[in-house]
């Protein structure tokens, strides 16, 4: 279907609205393996390329719960089992005193899972990616808006897909080497 050394076709657009419109049209046309690149987050763009939800909130919830439980169990085990110490006649398992550390551990667990979960789901760090082979792609971090239809898409055809992208109002369409 496609030559192995082509990653896809990259179209450049002038502004965020054109990019979103183009992504909608491409998705409507039946393309599924594509990604859009922009220098700022665009509210509706991920939905336009057909990506809806992320599991990240669930990961953060689990991270927070695990952190909190670990913090509480650590304190209970240290204070009531491993090293019971009578402080002013308080019970060994004096749970109200364990709340601040439990709270901090919950926060720590949730924050670590938010950051590392986001990086892991995004597949970062990733030093090499074929899109960086496009010379104008350096503008994706300044003022450029790009849509890339990937060669592994079932509908991908070098000449027909290029013609399609040109109808979307792209200022430039480039073949991305793999």
């Amino acid at each position: 279907m496609h030559s192995p050394d082509v990653y896809g076709l990259m179209a450049e657009f002038a502004d965020p609205n054109e990019l979103v419109a183009a992504a909608h049209r491409a998705h409507h046309e039946g393309y599924r393996r594509m990604d859009a690149y922009s220098p700022l987050p665009i509210e509706e763009l991920h939905e336009a390329i057909g990506f809806h939800n992320t599991r990240l909130p669930l990961i953060v919830l689990i991270g927070g719960i695990v952190g909190g439980l670990a913090g509480y169990l650590l304190q209970w085990w240290a204070s009531a089992v491993a090293y019971p110490l009578n402080v002013g006649g308080k019970p060994f398992h004096s749970w109200p005193a364990f709340i601040p550390v439990t709270f901090e551990c919950t926060i720590l667990g949730a924050a670590l899972s938010a950051v590392f979960g986001m990086l892991a789901l995004n597949g970062l760090p990733q030093p090499y990616h074929p899109v960086f082979n496009v010379p104008r792609f350096t503008l994706a971090s300044r003022s450029g808006f790009f849509l890339c239809i990937e060669a592994r898409d079932g509908k991908f055809d070098l000449s027909r897909t290029r013609a399609f992208l040109e109808t979307l109002g792209a200022t430039e369409v480039t073949t991305v080497a793999d």
Partner: peptide, 8 residues
């Protein structure tokens, strides 16, 4: 970290 501004 290889950030490329992907929509996802």
């Amino acid at each position: 970290l290889g950030w490329r501004g992907s929509a996802m």
